[in-house]
Design a binder for these strands. Structure first.
Lengths: 360, 360
DNA sequence: TCGATTTCTCAAAGCGCTTTGGCTTCCTCC
DNA sequence: GGAGGAAGCCAAAGCGCTTTGAGAAATCGA
């Protein structure tokens, strides 16, 4: 096995006294080549360390065997953590299918150009799109381009007539909110992601919807939209706790926000699950698990890595032309009750607008 | 600006009544083309949405304008967090230099094959290598391949005669250990990364070296090697605290480990910076900052994102052929003292092992 | 036995670019 | 006015693969 020197088809064909055609076919498993010849070729290829030149292969076939990921850079860099975990999922599939993963970093204002370049330059077979924003134009752009894609998440309005995979964000937060209400909580705060991102908006809507089902009105003071850092979790929670009438329960859009919120609560010497209940959304990070919080956290769980796996599979399927209809896939998040949720300590203040008695 | 239809050089040349040569040259900024012609070409290219086919470009030039990252998958998946941050750094550079980032997931047992494939397939111009292990053979392999590379980290033994960027892991932990000793600490524990990874070994060596300078012997009971998760931080710290003679100070190889350690300490109602001092290594994550811990953490700091930036720059330089000598670059980590380090509470007991007073 | 298949192999075209080498013009300068 | 350059353009080769269309050899059927 020679290291440095690179051998190509022509040389191999000279070496074996066979045409390039035959060698190419032998290597790529075509049937019209004699089995003993094939073995001869295979052996020689291994002996010389032959690997096809990928650029040439791509040019000839028009396929690139690669999927592109447009990685947001700049403003929402706090999402790295999720991106990494998602990437790990895609990687699992990529490796088993022998597909390259191409990361295209792109600033938000430049994304459109990036997609156009990808499509026209034929540098990837398919792309995945994420971090969908309010009024996002990228989906329409992709629909107009002849480039297979799958969206992780979905647009807020407009028809969902494109391939997508999303979790039921609204549903998850409806479930979480309902649980809290049933436990007697009336003042429920939300530490959410940036307010231009679709997932955050949906979660907020889920919460508001659940509240209104029980004739509760959301208090704007109990809402924070921000990048999902520990620090923002802490700050937000501190602000909530400083209110004249602090919340008795908290919803968190991410584990990292929850980390900060817990710190704030501890600092105030309040007891989680008693003085204040918490439900966080858990994207399942191997290094930060809700069950390992000082008070194990009740969560709505959906593995973002699994989403990466699934989307990679579907992208590969799209390329292979297996797609029938644009496929919409919505995953339910699982509500897992742990120790951070308990009955509301005190009944909501009697005066003022007393909410309807929620059913049980 | 047409969306779906893809135009190529030939069509453009027909459209403009110019040869492909001239168009190619106009587009790529060669001097031997008339300025008005160039403008004509540029306009037409923009109007038709022309983008060169990347595969063709690569085949013709032999350059790929891409750098490969072999992403470890499987066993050390806990390192994702660092990988992501590093990736973000590389991405910054990639975008400004118009270079693609290709992620090659690879299982440890398969890495060698992956590199060979990369080199022979000419699918990337250069690669970066990380997560160097004890007795790692990959560096020698890369040296034997005709593929530019930069190593993030370095081998434990053997000459460092290859391009590398590393932080002074040993030095950082010498500094940290010395500070603790000067504060009067004698029993210092270490929560480290996996014991087959070079960076972890160097840190351990740094600590041991500093101890021995003060004639202190490391206690094997005060050492844990493990993947760097919150859970492992908690478990390790708990074990330390349960010792007959628990440590009065702790070194942590990562912020995430520190997170777990802090949880353990809080649970035992000990006070950080008084009952026990902590110094953690901080790779600088935007979402988890040491100054935001309930007790701000003293750290050895070195931005892994900055390392990504630098390595990307150097890789691009290597490809451009700017390299003179293999370049070794060692960054010092900065020791930043915050509230988590304080004087040792009690001198270590002279006599036998007195059980720890688990407060309350 | 001979024509019809089947099996195996090959030469050559083509993918869409870049780059070499050469060919016109048009100046410039003595 | 003509040698010598410079400026601007082009035809064609080539990058290393896949794939088409065809041909030689072997096998088969009757």
């Amino acid at each position: 096995m020679i290291g440095a020197v690179v051998v190509n088809l022509k040389e191999l064909s000279k070496l074996l006294n066979l045409s390039q055609t035959t060698i190419s076919r032998a290597l790529n498993g075509y049937p019209e080549v004699n089995e003993v010849t094939r073995q001869r070729v295979l052996n020689a290829a291994k002996a010389t360390g032959y690997r096809p030149n990928i650029a040439a292969q791509r040019l000839a076939t028009g396929r690139t065997n690669s999927i592109g990921m447009v990685m947001p850079i700049g403003a929402d860099r706090d999402t790295d953590l999720h991106f990494a975990e998602f990437l790990a999922g895609m990687a699992e599939v990529a490796i088993s299918q022998d597909v390259q993963l191409i990361v295209h970093p792109s600033r938000p204002d430049d994304e459109e150009a990036t997609f156009r370049r990808l499509a026209a330059g034929r540098s990837v077979d398919a792309v995945y799109l994420s971090y969908i924003r309010r009024g996002d134009t990228r989906i329409d752009l992709l629909k107009s381009l002849s480039l297979p894609f799958v969206v992780h998440g979905r647009s807020l309005d407009g028809p969902h007539d494109y391939p997508l995979l999303d979790i039921d964000n609204a549903g998850a937060f409806v479930d979480a909110t309902r649980l809290l209400i049933q436990l007697g909580h009336r003042r429920i705060a939300l530490l959410n992601g940036p307010d231009n991102l679709a997932f955050a908006i949906s979660r907020h809507e889920g919460m508001v919807g659940a509240l209104s089902k029980y004739a509760l009105t959301p208090d704007p003071d109990l809402l924070q939209h921000s990048p999902m850092t520990e620090e923002n979790g802490y700050r937000g929670m501190m602000r909530f706790l400083d209110l004249a009438e602090p919340p008795t329960a908290l919803l968190c859009s991410s584990m990292v926000l929850a980390l900060g919120a817990v710190r704030a609560i501890n600092q105030r010497r309040l007891t989680i699950g008693e003085d204040i209940s918490i439900i966080a959304h858990d994207d399942v990070f191997p290094y930060l698990k809700p069950e390992n919080f000082s008070t194990p956290l009740t969560t709505t769980r959906s593995s973002i890595r699994a989403a990466g796996v699934r989307i990679a599979e579907r992208l590969i399927g799209e390329v292979a032309g297996l797609r029938a209809e644009p496929q919409q896939e919505i995953w339910k998040a699982e509500l897992i009750v742990r120790a951070s949720t308990g009955p509301a300590r005190k009944a909501p203040k009697p005066g003022g607008s007393r909410p309807a008695e929620a059913a049980e």
